[in-house]
Design a protein around this nucleic acid. Structure first.
Lengths: 201, 201
DNA sequence: ACCTGAACACCGTTCAAGT
DNA sequence: ACCTGAACACCGTTCAAGT
């Protein structure tokens, strides 16, 4: 019931509204009653993720390891894009929702199928996982930024007005950055990274 | 004076102690006086980073683009590892400290020197930057974790006790994960990623 | 121009006490 | 076992008022 109530709060009012007090109010109980059922707020977030992950249908997997890896990582990324607020919690606790352990298994196994030793495969997984975390953190940050309409330019964000003599390459790209930032290109990027990792075996 | 006081607080008591109230106390002024000189706490963090970055000596750069990129990214990573708490702020505001714009310039230029178009180079920079953010976020999280000695195992962190029938590859790696996590391997990983990016040109 | 102090509107979590 | 209400110990930031 605690998790269901929390889900409802997040669905209706977003994750920022997910305070212990708010969930308690949703249930009509006291705040402290929640701590009987959940260790702390972070655990509640992970339980939320686990439930969401369990509901996702597994994608069909191509045979060929490289294409299989692409599908698996895209699935992981897409799943987390829906709840990027949980990423810091996962990272902090080095956690993985139990309902997606199969995904991790498939990824490591695919690296092995591509010719890696299990250790190399684990290392490759960690590399792409780190990239994915970066991508998620940044995508959520830019989403929040446009959401709050924080358009008054911070004076330190000076990429578009750069001295062409001192920094010619950046100056030439001045109007490219906004475009590049807007583009969603996890797939392309992860493909390039996979190439590098697979080539090293 | 505000930045200097903030620096002193961080140096002596860590970034968690960096509250507006604490900095004000350090200066013997009122909390609100700070807001005359600094927009908000985030701006103070970025000013702190900028000052720290300006003090780092520039590394000697190899001629060959790939090796040059390695040195540049390692420099970027090492600089930020010293103050990883600023990473979320950078990401949130899409900021870059002015004193490290030269670094960004050098990186993009090196990708161009390796045969990329400026747009491809910018895209490659963004890819590695995202990986770097992930690496920094994770490294800080594990540092915090060992610092607070949060050793009571969260029940959802179950990588070491995995069913070998269902998840054979993960089970075989059970005792490898702690080792892998402890290893510092930004350089190796970024090298593999660079290979992938450079190969795609 | 710069500073002050009170106040706003919250947090997560502890703790002792209840049923 | 489970729940409660008060309290702790804070935050960043606003606002009106001062010099």
């Amino acid at each position: 019931m605690v998790v269901a109530a929390a889900e409802e709060v997040v669905r209706r009012e977003g994750v920022d509204a997910l305070t212990m007090r708010r969930v308690a109010r949703e249930l009509g109980s006291s705040t402290m009653a929640l701590y009987r059922h959940v260790r702390d707020r972070d655990e509640l977030l992970v339980l939320l993720l686990d439930r969401a992950a369990a509901e996702l249908p597994r994608p069909p997997l191509p045979r060929e390891p490289r294409r299989r890896l692409l599908v698996l990582f895209k699935f992981l990324y897409d799943g987390l894009v829906r709840s990027p607020w949980v990423v810091p919690v996962l990272v902090k606790g080095d956690l993985m929702a139990p309902s997606v352990l199969w995904l991790m298994e498939e990824i490591v196994a695919a690296f092995v199928a591509a010719g890696m030793t299990p250790e190399q495969a684990a290392e490759a997984y960690l590399t792409v996982w780190r990239f994915t975390v970066g991508e998620l953190v940044i995508s959520q940050a830019t989403a929040n930024q446009t959401a709050t309409l924080d358009c008054r330019p911070r004076q330190l964000a000076l990429l578009s007005s750069v001295d062409p003599d001192e920094l010619p390459t950046l100056a030439a790209l001045a109007d490219y950055w906004p475009k590049a930032r807007a583009r969603k290109s996890y797939r392309t990027r992860v493909a390039a990274i996979l190439d590098g990792l697979l080539a090293s075996t």
